[in-house]
Design a protein around this nucleic acid. Structure first.
Lengths: 201, 201
DNA sequence: CTTGACGTGTAACGATCGTTACATGTAACG
DNA sequence: CGTTACATGTAACGATCGTTACACGTCAAG
């Protein structure tokens, strides 16, 4: 019955992964962990310390898992963005990603409460995104776009649970980027310019 | 009858627009409205009734404002998606949109609390989106995509407040769709390769 | 003037919150 | 053995939560 801090943290994350952050309360949490609120405070000093430990563990999990993805050999024919998506919606990462997005949203409205738990995970994402977009598109707006597509689709996935639809939409975006790149390549090779502009709606 | 209730609802929304939903408490709310918690319960029956009234008013505002947009004459040269974006980030709509997104996220984790306040605003969006994508792309994935782009960029706007960057990214997406359409049109006119058709991943 | 509905203030209820006081059990070490 | 440090249980504290009881004032209708 002697649970130490690390074991507590692991169980704590499991709890947060299914119950979310916003309505966390010490006593119900302690009840499900088989301990008491007293113990949680003893080990984590305060509720905030408890949240800090949990959020840190979450970030650590995601960082390690993402690093493993980056180091693994990339299969041919799968675009980085799609590979990132598959990683995110994999069973072992999806709950963590949901928690991360929940944190991000809560931090928008309650920065003083949740802001301290934000780590710059976007920096990690960016390293991957850098390889997604064509080089000549690497301005700020064009790195924003794939991340926004990812975020938006992940949002829809969280709301509807529709993996097929969201994944297909992501593939459509990738095709779109491909086609546009191809089109630009052709336009450079044979610059006919204004003659091809016709539909504007 | 019940004139007081309408005034209260208006003030209530103003409060929620700036303070958010997740940490709403009757007494601080009442204090800022210059009344008492007693009064709020008297007029709205319960906290849930109060939230219901507020969320209904929010949906009503958005629906009316969006309808006004749909009925207004569309300026030439501005794509519908961009027009929708400009509407959403306009000063009079942005706080409502933020509140809507907050509601949507809270409903993901706490459906029993916030689910009842969800109305199918996506249906309203869809009517606009229908005119955004080219006709031959109107499958489910391709209507998901612009909405996801919008959602993702709006999320980033909420987090960073960077209007310029997000708006520019949206414009890039629109260009992307345009270029892809143009490319496909050329491919149809001179079908050199079958590679530009659908690939099954 | 009386009645009764609406609106409001004060105060309290029971529940739950994060946190703390106090006592105790366990086990390693001198 | 006793000491010491960590771990744990029981209970309670004060604060705040949504909600309710009760009394009072206003004002139009009878």
């Amino acid at each position: 019955m002697q649970i130490r801090k690390e074991e507590l943290t692991a169980a704590l994350i499991d709890y947060l992964l299914t119950h979310g952050l916003s309505e966390l309360s010490l006593r119900p949490l302690a009840a499900e962990l088989g301990t008491s609120a007293r113990l949680l405070i003893y080990h984590f000093d305060s509720k905030e310390g408890l949240l800090a430990a949990a959020m840190d563990a979450m970030h650590t999990h995601l960082r390690h898992s993402l690093q493993a993805l980056a180091e693994a050999e990339a299969p041919k024919g799968i675009k980085p963005l799609r590979r990132f998506w598959d990683w995110a919606i994999a069973a072992e990462n999806l709950p963590y990603m949901k928690l991360l997005y929940e944190l991000q949203m809560l931090a928008v409205r309650n920065p003083e409460t949740y802001g301290p738990f934000l780590q710059n995970s976007a920096a990690g994402w960016l390293a991957l995104v850098k390889r997604i977009m064509p080089d000549d598109e690497r301005d700020a707006a064009m790195t924003s776009l794939p991340i926004a597509v990812f975020d938006g689709l992940f949002l829809e996935l969280m709301s509807t649970g529709d993996r097929r639809r969201t994944t297909r939409a992501l593939d459509r975006f990738i095709e779109l980027v491909e086609q546009a790149r191809l089109h630009r390549a052709q336009a450079v090779r044979k610059p006919r310019k204004a003659a091809t502009r016709k539909r504007g709606a």
